[in-house]
Simulated assay, not measured.
Amino acid sequence: MASPDNILLHLAEDDEQQVRDVFKRLAERGFQAQQQTPHVTITFSPAMPADVVQCAAELLPPVVPASLKRVGSVVFGTKRKQTVAWLLETTDELERAARQISALNPDGRGPRWIPHLTVGLRLPREIVPEYMRALDELTSSHLKEFTAVRAAFWRPRAQELRVLAGATMNDSVLGASDLT
């Protein structure tokens, strides 16, 4: 299955590096390497409709940057491969905007949004408890708050990144060859 189009939030550089450091320490303990760029997805679709991207471009600039607080851990998935994520809370303004964008996406989940940052992607179900224990041990107690500094529309098939709100980013962050 091809990676879907996403409207997502990117973290401040220092926050992103702290998450990557956690990924590195988990890999040093023998867990599968996490290669994804740390981000928070607002909505995704096999082919994101233009009106959803336009709505995001209108609603997100007034609410980004935004604070994201880590409030727990969550496991997504009911089959053999599961995803471990940090559950996040954010500002009421960003929450309302994200729900409105999600509701407009015909491939979305309606006006629902569970803000989270994936820290363990496609993990075999049987290692999830051990992974979560290691994650707790390796996560610094001060790593409780992040700042979303940019919102973007990411089309992985075309390697196209369009910044919708916040700071611009360099091409190397997501490997995008053409920022539009």
Rank of each mutant, 00 (worst) to 15 (best):
K144W: 10
L135M: 10
R96Y: 03
A148I: 09
V128E: 00
E137D: 15
Q54A: 14
V128T: 08
D51E: 12
T91Y: 01
V71D: 05
R150K: 12
V119Q: 00
S141A: 15
L88S: 02
V74S: 09
L143C: 14
T90H: 02
E89V: 14
E137Y: 03
I127R: 14
T41R: 03
A151P: 06
L87K: 04
P106F: 08
M132Q: 15
R109H: 13
A134N: 02
V74M: 10
V75K: 06
K144C: 12
L143N: 05
L68Q: 05
P111Q: 11
Q159Y: 10
V63P: 02
R80N: 08
V149A: 07
T147Y: 06
W86I: 07
E95D: 14
E160R: 13
T43R: 05
P46N: 07
G72S: 01
L135K: 02
T90P: 03
E145N: 14
V119I: 14
M48H: 07
H116L: 08
V64I: 15
V71N: 01
E160N: 11
A158F: 15
S102Y: 05
F76E: 09
P106H: 03
P111H: 10
T37L: 08
R96K: 11
P65C: 03
A98M: 03
T139A: 01
P61M: 10
H142A: 15
R122A: 15
R80Y: 11
L68H: 04
A57E: 02
A57S: 13
A103T: 02
A57H: 00
